[in-house]
């Protein structure tokens, strides 16, 4: 799966060293970002586990270590790259909990007590939120809008649509996209909440109803 990925620059040893020249360094970060995004797109990687402890990770094994030229990216530099993607280009997002609407995007951080930094998940946006939204909307419109009765979709159902780009998409990421972009911004759908889990005054989106 890496063959297509073995571009020339990936075998350029200075890529694995943090360049002292700041201009070059920024370009290097760009290069790394595009490499990561391409890698994730090809391998359908949606989420990355905590940045500093990526021991058992496809990214770590197959991207950050280039066995051909015997170079690897050190942890510090990885951290810089993630930081760049998170703060500068926003290709990486951290789904937390939205205080305003009390919506929890991240299902794994349901329990506030267990919410520590190490378990924070970061989502890799190899397409932008808007792109994903348009993609989903296209699908929904093409399938659901024709029959007026069937315009309710569960999020899980959406991730199981084979052949679409969002097939197997991380549920939390899908929830985030649907809530923020589709429901709140574009107002093409409304959220359907899980009624069972309403005790703690936290709402978990389970599905959407297309308007």
């Amino acid at each position: 799966m890496l063959e297509r990925f073995q571009s020339n620059i990936y075998n350029f040893p200075p890529l694995f060293t943090k360049q002292p020249n700041i201009i070059i360094y920024n370009k290097q970060l760009e290069t790394w970002q595009s490499l990561i995004l391409r890698f994730c797109e090809q391998n359908k990687i949606w989420v990355t586990t905590p940045v500093f402890n990526t021991t058992d990770n496809s990214l770590q094994k197959n991207l950050f270590q280039n066995h051909k030229i015997n170079r690897s990216l050190d942890n510090d530099f990885q951290a810089y790259i993630w930081d760049y993607m998170l703060n500068t280009t926003q290709k990486l997002i951290n789904l937390g909990h939205d205080n305003a609407s009390n919506i929890i995007y991240n299902s794994s951080t349901n329990d506030i007590n267990s919410n520590n930094n190490n378990s924070t998940k970061y989502y890799i946006l190899w397409r932008s939120i808007e792109d994903w939204c348009s993609n989903i909307l296209n699908y929904l419109v093409s399938t659901g809008a024709s029959s007026t009765s069937n315009n309710i979709f569960t999020l899980y159902e959406l991730t199981q649509v084979y052949g679409q780009d969002f097939y197997n998409m991380d549920l939390d990421l899908l929830r985030y996209i649907v809530v923020t972009e589709l429901c709140n911004k574009r107002k093409r759908a409304v959220c359907l909440y899980d009624e069972e889990d309403n005790s703690k005054n936290k709402k978990v989106v389970m599905g959407i109803k297309l308007l």
Partner: peptide, 26 residues
């Protein structure tokens, strides 16, 4: 040259190696 951006450096275990900057041109 590194400061000017014409050379990039590869810092490996066996030492520092120098390469011409062919990918990140100014």
């Amino acid at each position: 040259c590194i400061q000017e951006g014409s050379i990039v450096v590869d810092d490996a275990f066996s030492g520092e190696f120098y390469y011409s900057n062919i990918y990140w041109k100014n």
